[in-house]
Design a protein around this nucleic acid. Structure first.
Length: 280
DNA sequence: AACGGCACCTGGTCGC
DNA sequence: TGCGACCAGGTGCCGT
């Protein structure tokens, strides 16, 4: 499910009933996620206060504080199929409900993930020094993600622009859906070598990435099949999609049929008229 | 150093 | 109805 807007939607949904609450119990039904959920967490976490929830790229960062004021962190990732919901503690678990974090207020945070590509990691080291977080590009909705820095990165890069904006080193939060949509809005063919983009194209792309992500957040993310917000509602951005999943349909701008190709084992969708193939 | 491909999983859909 | 092939919102890691 989750690109940045879905993670942000999840964050906003779980915050009200969990932030500031004390952890009472941790239940791990299946520790086999992308990395094993450490067994000691069922003893380590109870008693700590969930003092703050934040987001870095597609990671959710849960700051925990113990009774001596010492901080530690949970690093959560939803992978391809994960979601988090806040539920009353007596809610029966279903298939793929792998982890419950129970709080003192009677609610729990439930992690559900059929494909188990997600992560549930804990660290008491400085959070931003964590190896999963150090190499990440700036937040896409911040000033630090801008034309200058992306254009700089693209110099000498022969890989396709779509691969670049989906690479955590150069842009974060942009998954397959929003990569395709941003490139469409900027009229850039997804296979264009990064070093062939003009500065004006780069400027347009940066701007459209920001706009697409911001608008998707406003709409509660994109629900393709199984993404639900923590309230159990789907995201409404799907109706805004111009090209993703629309092969054969008319381009909303020029009515040319949308084309699907495979790039780096991922589907790319584009309008061959609005996004002309680069020369050479 | 840069790049492309693989792996990790389950489940839904499609064609035969 | 069953079965195999293929597809899916991510990303760290490995080999070239």
């Amino acid at each position: 499910m989750p690109e940045l807007p879905e993670v942000e939607t999840t964050l906003r949904g779980i915050q009200p009933k969990t932030e500031g609450q004390h952890i009472q119990k941790l239940i791990v039904r299946n520790p086999k996620l992308r990395w094993p959920v450490e067994a000691h967490l069922t003893e380590t976490l109870p008693g700590k206060k969930l003092s703050k929830i934040s987001r870095r790229a597609k990671y959710l960062l849960l700051t925990l504080t113990d009774d001596k004021g010492r901080e530690s962190h949970l690093i959560l990732h939803l992978g391809m199929s994960g979601n988090l919901r806040v539920l009353p503690q007596n809610t029966p678990h279903q298939k793929h409900d792998h982890i419950d974090v129970l709080f003192d207020n009677g609610f729990m945070l439930r992690y559900h993930d059929p494909r188990r590509f997600g992560a549930f990691l804990w660290t008491d080291e400085p959070i931003m020094a964590h190896p999963l977080l150090t190499h990440l590009a700036p937040e896409p909705l911040s000033e630090e993600f801008n034309t200058d820095q992306l254009f700089q990165h693209m110099k000498g890069k022969t890989s396709a622009i779509k691969a670049i904006i989906m690479n955590n080193r150069y842009a974060v939060g942009v998954g397959n859906i929003y990569a395709n949509e941003s490139l469409f809005l900027s009229g850039i063919h997804p296979q264009t070598p990064a070093n062939k983009l003009t500065r004006a194209q780069t400027d347009s792309l940066v701007s459209n990435i920001k706009q697409v992500l911001a608008k998707a957040i406003e709409q509660g993310g994109t629900t393709l099949k199984d993404f639900l917000t923590p309230d159990g509602k789907p995201g409404y951005f799907k109706q805004e999609l111009n090209v993703y999943g629309r092969q054969g349909e008319a381009c909303p701008v020029c009515a040319t049929p949308i084309v699907r190709i495979t790039q780096n084992q991922r589907a790319s969708y584009f309008c061959p008229q609005c996004q002309p193939k680069p020369k050479g």
